[in-house]
Write a protein that binds this DNA or RNA. Structure first.
Lengths: 243, 243
DNA sequence: TGCGCAGAAAATGTCAGACATTTAAATGTA
DNA sequence: TACATTTAAATGTCTGACATTTTCTGCGCA
């Protein structure tokens, strides 16, 4: 039953075998793996090869290792924080390496955000509202760099998403929202466009506070359309400059 | 400037240094990394340590390696397929390891799917419609196992999402849809419930074909509600059994 | 009896060096 | 010129050793 795909590294094969065991539930959280020496003899390879396999799994946050007596490798409980981090890294790279069009990413992001809006309107906590208001205030400060403006924009939208109070939703959305930031950073925000955005953000916060899902949806749609035009302008300028 | 965090492995530090270089764009796709020996002397570590670092990066699909003369490690273009795979694995584990409530996962999934529906209605290709119809047909076959029914359900919904013709959206949704399957597999589908679901699926396919976004949305909402009741029943049964 | 400290043991972390294998370029020959 | 051969530069793998960390054990002492 062993898949003797001679084409792959031994360490990759071993990593796959262990990974499958974890995914299929044959090993449970906090269960200890055999020691490196035991794994080595079990798979008939040397200890460095086993170690390479374990490092692969560690990179995916599937195991953690602990030194010392009664240490070893343990199946790790994947935390939301780590999953967020991995997802954001992957999403960001996917966008930056595959020449994804601004329109495509933007459409995806706002489509997903609008899916959160009704839940956010229903469940928003004072905490999330406070964050949104604080970021709106920051975005109104003159002299803010474009990067900081974008970062604040991300924080605002994260708060909106988190207000839906569904960690699975937050996790899935994190990728879409954060991965957009590098693309957004290419936009130069004029005083006029910042005013527009702050106005729309305020309208969104108001709608969420008033638990008015319909209003939030309409405003988000407006914001999506406006962001799209800003992005298109920026992309055109870059295209002209490079020719 | 070297972060001498003595608390972490050398291989983790080296992996981080290279990963940052890739993420920040200091290394571009298909660029060759220094050889293992060169990296070893550059970071003042041994070759096995460098190799462990490289395996970490390979596990995240950030690099690929090539043997032979003029081989080495190269920055890898992250493909949608691989990103899908990683995302699904992570999402699945996140759900299974953190005792996410069925309701939470279900809510997230359908909220996101409903975000795709309007775009799918607008852009659906004959291909996607055909897939949806084919899966509906499969789901009507008597004698289908619960697992196969669930797998077909996932394929149907993937087709719905893909019909929106936005790869970024498909990528983000893949995690939500596929990661639900293990949870759905715990449900025993009676003949009656299958009929219900097939009916709703048919209504969704009809709405998408007719480019009627509103109808698709309403039906998806119904399906979400129905799935939720099925899930709750299944969870209650399991709870009773275990006491 | 109970407490604290030293040592043993077990595991991962790291290193050095060697050999095997793969691959493409360079070289030589018909 | 075309094809076969050699060669060199990489990664892949193994062996063995030592360093470090951490826990448990057992001893001595009050």
């Amino acid at each position: 039953m062993k898949t003797d795909a001679k084409t792959t590294d031994l360490s990759a094969q071993i990593a796959k075998a262990i990974r499958d065991a974890i995914i299929e539930g044959r090993m449970i959280v906090d269960e200890r793996l055999p020691s490196e020496a035991e794994l080595a003899s079990e798979f008939n390879v040397s200890r460095p090869t086993v170690r390479e396999a374990l490092k692969r799994l560690a990179a995916q946050s599937l195991i953690r290792t602990q030194r010392g007596a009664f240490g070893g490798a343990f199946v790790k409980r994947l935390s939301y924080e780590e999953a967020y981090g991995q997802h954001i890294t992957t999403s960001t790279l996917l966008l930056s390496m595959n020449a994804v069009r601004f329109e495509t990413a933007c459409e995806a992001r706002y489509a997903l955000e609008r899916a959160c809006a009704p839940l956010a309107a229903q469940r928003r906590s004072p905490d999330h509202l406070a964050t949104m208001r604080a970021e709106i205030h920051r975005q109104s400060q003159p002299g803010l760099s474009d990067e900081s403006f974008c970062a604040s924009d991300v924080t605002f939208h994260r708060a909106l998403v988190d207000a839906a109070d569904n960690p699975v939703l937050s996790y899935q959305l994190a990728g879409a929202v954060e991965a957009m930031q590098p693309l957004m950073n290419m936009i130069t925000f004029t005083e006029r466009s910042r005013e527009q955005i702050v106005g729309l953000h305020t309208a969104i916060a108001d709608a969420i506070e008033a638990q008015d899902a319909a209003a939030a949806d309409v405003t988000l749609e407006e914001l999506a359309a406006y962001t799209l035009t800003l992005g298109k302008d920026a992309m055109e300028k870059r295209a002209r400059k490079s020719t």
